[in-house]
Amino acid sequence: MSHVNKPAKRRRFSLAANIALLPMALTVLFAYVGTMLWTLRVSVSSSRTFPADDFVGAAQYVRLFNNERWLLSLHNLLIYGVLFIAACLVLGFLLAVFIDQKVAAEGVLRTIFLYPYAMSFVATGLVWQWMLNPELGIQEVLHKLGFEHARFDWIIDQDMAIYTVVIATVWQASGLVMALMLSGLRGIDEEMWKAARIDGIPRWRVYVSIVLPMLGPSISTAFVLLFVMVVKVYDAVVAMTQGGPGTASEVPAKFIMDYLFGRANIGLASAASVVLLTTVLAIVVPIYFVRNRASKGKVAR
């Protein structure tokens, strides 16, 4: 009898689990998918202060890419994204390698390196704004130490302001990459290291030729998370520079918020939002399918 009842119990458990997940599924369907579709609809209308029920095709997108401020924000985002992702991956990997050497107080070091990620980007931006303020921060400290000609006023320099945002956010996010990389390093068989030592392979060569390819899943996960952070970067920019000096550190998310609330142009803001969403999907979806096929290939073998 117990064997007969097991399939029925499994069906009841599965039904209960699906019912429990129903509220979340409805939230995703209406709150996320619904708002995305509504944003897409508004982006092809002539909406300004209030949504309009007409259809103007790609007119809002043409206006968007004729807007110099939008093009500048994309340029800044490209610079920021390349530097931010590269620096986080390199620094996170080096920190993970350092901790993987079974150093003393490993738990304390992990906490210290990961702690900045627990802070909000607003708090990070305000702290770094103070540190980079030429009248209060690092530059003033150097002057008091006798280096009177030292300059570190990037935050008020139009050509360098975007790099201050890179510095602040790399400091915050590299600990997350470290944690992901460290979990990958701890999954590598110790026998591989013993074989490499016996063969006399230099340690750096082992990391470059063997370890890094084995960390592919960790690296791709870190890349996706960092890429999403790049696309939605807003808090740190507002807290540090307000997009300035002028529009020197303008980013797409700030452009969208300004046009949505400040200039009451929801049609143009929606078009910009759709462009950002398309960019994210263009990167994330191929990575997801590649990883999915790779995992299925491993199961088949």
Rank of each mutant, 00 (worst) to 15 (best):
H149A: 10
L83I: 03
I266D: 04
D235L: 00
V233E: 10
V211W: 04
A168M: 07
S174N: 08
M160S: 08
A31E: 02
S209Q: 08
V82W: 02
V237Q: 07
H3C: 04
K144N: 14
G243K: 07
G81M: 09
S273Q: 00
F255M: 05
L21T: 07
L94E: 12
I85M: 08
L215K: 10
S46P: 12
V108Y: 12
L185K: 01
D53V: 05
F227A: 04
W128F: 15
V284W: 03
V208Q: 13
W204Q: 11
M1I: 12
L212F: 14
G57N: 06
M36I: 12
D153E: 11
F223I: 08
Q139K: 09
D54N: 14
H3M: 13
K232H: 08
V237G: 07
L109G: 04
S295N: 09
R10K: 12
V166P: 02
L260D: 01
L132D: 05
T169I: 02
F13Q: 14
Y234S: 06
G34F: 10
D54E: 00
A282R: 00
D258F: 02
A196N: 13
P116E: 03
R186T: 02
N18S: 15
L40S: 09
G34Y: 04
N76G: 05
I210C: 04
A58S: 13
T124H: 04
A58V: 12
I162V: 11
T124Q: 03
V233M: 10
L91F: 07
A282K: 03
L225G: 01
D100N: 15
S220N: 15
G297L: 14
V165A: 05
V170G: 00
